[in-house]
Design a protein around this nucleic acid. Structure first.
Length: 415
RNA sequence: GGAGGGGUGGGAGAGUGGCUAAAUCCAGCAGACUGUAAAUCUGCCCGCUUCGGCGUACGGUGGUUCGAAUCCACCCCCCUCCA
C-alpha cells in the first residue's frame, strides 16, 4: 500500500527525506510517468562538504536509483555572493581562486554516490558560475528583477531574521535568492530540470525558483525539502569534538568517519540507518527495533554501511576492524593515527605531547598537561599521572599506544 | 553630512580604572556511571612554562595613569533616526 505512485517519492517518504514540497501530488504524477531531472545546489565555502550535506547527496542518489537524472550544482557563482540563510553575520569573502579550489576538492565526493556520464539518466555536474558571472546587470534587472518584490523578499526568514536582530545584511547578500532562483530557470532551459531539492532552510530560495520558472518559462517546476538534521537530543548534526565531520578523506579519515557513525545516539539509530545507508527498509526497521545494548550491533552496521558508501567497502571493513581491536580487545590496532618516532629520539626521551599534537589528539601542550592532571592520558593503557617523556622502554612489540579518554587513540612507532 | 547607540574569548552576553585571562549561558574536552549511547554529577576550557612564572588578548593607532576592556584623542566598521 504505497502512499505514492512513483518509486522516487515512495523511497524518500519511507526513509524520512521529505519535509515539504510545493506540489507533491503533481511531482509524484510526473515522476511516475517520465524521467525527471532534479538538482541540488552546493556551496563551495570549504574544501570539503561535511555530513550536513550528506542528506542532500543521498536525495540525489535516490533520484538516480529510482530512474531519474540528478544534477549536482556547484555554487561557484552563488558562493561569491554568500547565502545569508542561517547566518547572523555576513561571512568572509572568498576569492575566485579559493572557490575554484574548493570546488575541485569537493567534486570527488559525488562520484562515490552518483553515476556520471552522457546517458539520459547519468548524473550531471555543473557550476552556476558558468552562467551567473556572464549576467549583465541591467539586463538581469530588467528581465528578472521585475519578478521579485521587495515586499515579498523581506518576509523570507533569511532576511527577516537579520532585520530583527539588527544585524546588517548587504545588498549583495540580499541578491543571493535571486541568483538561486535564476539557477533553477537556467537549469530548466539547459536540461529540462524541473525539480530543486534542498534543506528545509532553503525553502524560501527554492520557492522563488519555482515561481520564476512559472513566470519566465510557463512551466510548473517542483521544490522538495528535507527535514533539518538534528540529533534526538536536539544538537546540530555533524559536529564532533574535532570540529566538522568532513566527507573528504584527507580532512577526516575513514576511521574517524566510521567512529562518527558508531557513536550515534541510541534514539537516532533508526533515522540514520534509513537516511544514510541503502539497506532495505525492512532491514532498517529490524535493526532499529533492537533494544538495550543490542542497539550497538545496529550502530556497527550503520557505521559499516555509511562508511562503505563514502569511502568504499574495504575502507569500511578496515575501520571496523581497527575499532574492534581497539575497543573490544584493547589492542594497539593498525589503522589508528600513527606517529613515527626515530629510535634515537625515543632513547633520548620523546615528549608525549609531540605525537599527541601530530595526531590531533590534543591541540596544545597545555591541553595535554590538563589531560594528565585529569587522569585522561594513558600510555599502553596505563594512566600517566606525571608528565614524563616516552622512551624506547615504552615500546610493546615496536609500538606505543597513546589514549586520551576512551575514544581517542593513536600509535607511536619506532622507525 | 548631522544626532544618538554600539564593536568583548567558538557563539550569545556581563563588565565602565586595580580584587579581570575577563561573570553567566550555550557549544566543546576529560573523569565518574555505562553499552565507544543518552541523561546526570564533577573537573577543565588563550599560548608557553624548569609550575615560580612569562607572553599575548576586550575593533585599530596613539595618549593619560604606578595601573585601562574600562578614561582621552584620532581612525575604521556596524545599528537607529534625520538630511
Amino acid at each position: 500500500m504505497a502512499a505514492w505512485k512513483s518509486d522516487f517519492l515512495n523511497v524518500l517518504a519511507e526513509r524520512g527525506f521529505i519535509h515539504q514540497g510545493t506540489n507533491l501530488q503533481g511531482l509524484d504524477a510526473r515522476a511516475a510517468k517520465e524521467t525527471l531531472t532534479g538538482y541540488i545546489g552546493f556551496d563551495a565555502t570549504a574544501r570539503s562538504l561535511h555530513v550536513g550535506s550528506l542528506i542532500q547527496i543521498m536525495m540525489l542518489y535516490w533520484l538516480q536509483q529510482t530512474g531519474h537524472r540528478p544534477i549536482a550544482l556547484m555554487g561557484g557563482g552563488t558562493t561569491k555572493v554568500g547565502d545569508p540563510t542561517g547566518k547572523d553575520h555576513q561571512r568572509a569573502m572568498l576569492t575566485d581562486a579559493e572557490i575554484d579550489a574548493n570546488i575541485a576538492s569537493i567534486k570527488g565526493v559525488f562520484e562515490k554516490f552518483l553515476r556520471f556520464g552522457a546517458g539520459p539518466k547519468d548524473a550531471i555536474m555543473t557550476n552556476n558560475d558558468e552562467w551567473l558571472s556572464k549576467l549583465g546587470y541591467v539586463e538581469f534587472l530588467r528581465d528578472y528583477g521585475t519578478h521579485f518584490t521587495i515586499n515579498r523578499m523581506l518576509t523570507f526568514d533569511s532576511v527577516k531574521l537579520r532585520l530583527e536582530r539588527e544585524s546588517p545584511m548587504t545588498f549583495l547578500e540580499f541578491n543571493y535568492m535571486l541568483m538561486q532562483a535564476y539557477d533553477f530557470h537556467e537549469l530548466y532551459n539547459r536540461c529540462g530540470c524541473l525539480l530543486q531539492m534542498g534543506g528545509s532552510d532553503q525553502w524560501g530560495n527554492i520557492v522563488n525558483g519555482v515561481e520564476l520558472c512559472r513566470r519566465k518559462d510557463g512551466v510548473e517546476a517542483f521544490g522538495l525539502t528535507t527535514p533539518l538534521l538534528t540529533t534526538a537530543s536536539g544538537k546540530k548534526m555533524g559536529k564532533t569534538e574535532a570540529g566538522a565531520v568532513w566527507l573528504n578523506a584527507d580532512l577526516f579519515s575513514p576511521y574517524d568517519y566510521w567512529q562518527f557513525w558508531r557513536n550515534t545516539e541510541d534514539a537516532d539509530v533508526a533515522v540514520m540507518l534509513a537516511r544514510f545507508t541503502v539497506l532495505p527498509i525492512e532491514e532498517v526497521n529490524r535493526l532499529a527495533a533492537l533494544g538495550g545494548s543490542e542497539i550497538n550491533e545496529a550502530k556497527k552496521i550503520l557505521a559499516n554501511e555509511a562508511t562503505a558508501l563514502l569511502h568504499g567497502r574495504d575502507a569500511a571493513s578496515e575501520a571496523a576492524e581497527t575499532a574492534r581491536r581497539t575497543f573490544e580487545e584493547g589492542a594497539a590496532a593498525e589503522g589508528l593515527p600513527t606517529f613515527i618516532a626515530s629510535m634515537e629520539s625515543l632513547k633520548a626521551g620523546l615528549s608525549v605531547f609531540a605525537p599527541l599534537l601530530e595526531t590531533a589528539l590534543i591541540a596544545s601542550n597545555g591541553e595535554g598537561r590538563r589531560h594528565i592532571k585529569a587522569g585522561a592520558l594513558r600510555v599502553n593503557d596505563a594512566p600517566m599521572t606525571e608528565e614524563r617523556p616516552l622512551s624506547d622502554a615504552d615500546l610493546v612489540d615496536g609500538v606505543i599506544k597513546l589514549s586520551i579518554g576512551k575514544k581517542k587513540h593513536a600509535l607511536v612507532k619506532a622507525g
